[in-house]
Amino acid sequence: MRGRAWRSGPGTGSGPVGRRTSTGRLGWPAGRRTGLLGAAVLAGALVLSGCDRGGNTDLGLALSTLNNPFFVGIKEGAQAEAERRGLHINITDAQNDPMQQINQMETFTSQDVKAAIINPVDSDAAVPAVGVANRAKVPVISIDRGVNGGDVGSTIASDNVAGGRLAAKTLAESLGGKGKVAFLEGQPGTSAARERGQGFEEGIKRYPGIEVVARQPADFDRTKGMDVMSNMLQAHRDIGGVFAANDEMALGAAKSLGARAGRDVKIVAFDGTPDGVAAVRGGTLTATVAQQPRLLGKQAVDQALRAARGERPPKQVKVPVVLVTSRNAAEFDG
């Protein structure tokens, strides 16, 4: 799959819990719809009107953080899809605090939303938040990260295991199949970190000449990525490659490596954010496995609406990843 992974505009942030951040009620155009397209649009309107009052379904989206361009992309995709459908969506920012997500789910249920979407801060800690919605009979969809309990109708996520394998292959080949590498893991307790790690470990085993000499979580954070990389270099000055489970950690590692980044030390990342793609184009990163956050947001809204109508959405929706290298980076917005 080729093409733009995502287009990121300026993030608009999130208001206080319970405050509506999107108010895109869309009216029907004047005049009579004719033909098959008009019939399909009318049928869709009738389905939604059976779901709630006046044909407008309120949704809640509880994001783990908006201090990361990837999650801003999810927000933009969900918001655009809700507005396209003429729906209200309340988008909140937990600032990486799982207790905030419990409060936000309570707010959603008090607003009588028809479905809730959660991007867990932690896959275990999100279970009580999901329980709030379950008790209120509000369908729940998770996005990007799974929830290790509760009744979740569907999980919308990138194929993280496949992406981890692809990152391992790319890093190993950039090193000629031999050398010492470091692995900057994501936030412990999240399914994304676990699955990317699983894929990377599976992939790197195929290259017996590659030795993983250091691995440590850096919590998907750029500053922590820089600090962790600095600590690793003190013990392993001969590291020739780095896999970071997201772009932010990779960019932090690159800052720690300085002029060695991309030249003496190959770095492969994960996410495909504008900063990550720009670093690939500039040669600081060797590659990044690009997710499609706007598509994730769009898919989550779609599955949430299905659940709100009483349908059974698929338990998992896997969104493909795309490898970004210097050869195709110009095709991506960065």
Rank of each mutant, 00 (worst) to 15 (best):
Ile91Asp: 09
Ala126Thr: 03
Gln101Leu: 04
Thr109Arg: 01
Gln100Gly: 11
Asp122Lys: 04
Ser110Lys: 09
Gln79Cys: 13
Phe108Ala: 04
Asn90Ala: 15
Ile141Glu: 07
Asn90Glu: 15
Asp122Asn: 11
Lys114Asp: 07
Ser110Gln: 06
Glu81Phe: 11
Ala82Met: 02
Gln101Phe: 09
Ala129Arg: 01
Val113Leu: 07
Ala80Phe: 09
Glu83Ile: 14
Val127Gly: 02
Ile91His: 07
Met99Leu: 15
Ala129Pro: 01
Ile143Asp: 10
Gln101Ser: 07
Ser110Asn: 09
Ala82Asn: 01
Ser123Met: 10
Pro128Tyr: 09
Pro139Val: 08
Asn134Tyr: 05
Ile141Ala: 02
Pro98Ser: 06
His88Glu: 14
Gln101Val: 05
Ala125Gln: 14
Val121Gly: 01
Val127Leu: 12
Met105Cys: 06
Asp97Tyr: 08
Val130Glu: 06
Asp112Asn: 10
Asn119Cys: 14
Ala80Pro: 07
Asp122Gln: 00
Val140Cys: 06
Val127Tyr: 09
Met99Ser: 15
Val121Gln: 04
Ile117Gly: 00
Ala115Arg: 00
Met99Glu: 15
Gln79Trp: 14
Gly131His: 09
Ala129Cys: 00
His88Asp: 15
Val121Trp: 06
Pro128Ser: 00
Thr107Lys: 02
Lys137Ile: 06
Val113Asn: 02
Val130Arg: 06
Gln101Ala: 05
Ile143Leu: 15
Asp93Cys: 07
Asn119Tyr: 03
Val113Gly: 03
Ala116Gln: 04
Phe108Lys: 00
Gln111Ser: 03
Ala94Asn: 04
Ala116Ile: 02
Pro120Thr: 11
Pro98Arg: 00
Met99Trp: 15
Ala136Trp: 07
Arg85Ile: 13
Ile118Phe: 12
Ser142Thr: 13
Gln95Trp: 09
Lys114Met: 01
Glu106Pro: 07
Gly77Ile: 08
Glu106Asp: 11
Glu83Asp: 14
Pro120Asn: 08
Val130His: 00
Ala82Glu: 01
Ala116Arg: 03
Arg85Val: 14
Gln104Arg: 02
Pro98Trp: 11
Ala126Phe: 04
Arg84Ala: 15
Val132Ile: 12
Ser110Gly: 07
Gly77Arg: 05
Asp97Gln: 11
Glu83Pro: 10
Asn96Leu: 14
Arg85Thr: 10
Asn134His: 01
Ala94Cys: 09
Glu81Leu: 12
Asn90Ile: 15
Gln79Met: 14
Gln111Gly: 02
Ala82Ile: 11
Val132Trp: 11
Phe108Thr: 05
Gln100Leu: 12
Arg85Ser: 13
Val113Ile: 03
Ser142Gln: 00
Ile102Cys: 06
Gln100Phe: 10
Lys114Gly: 07
Ala133Pro: 01
Met105Val: 00
Asp124Pro: 01
Val130Tyr: 05
Gln95Ile: 12
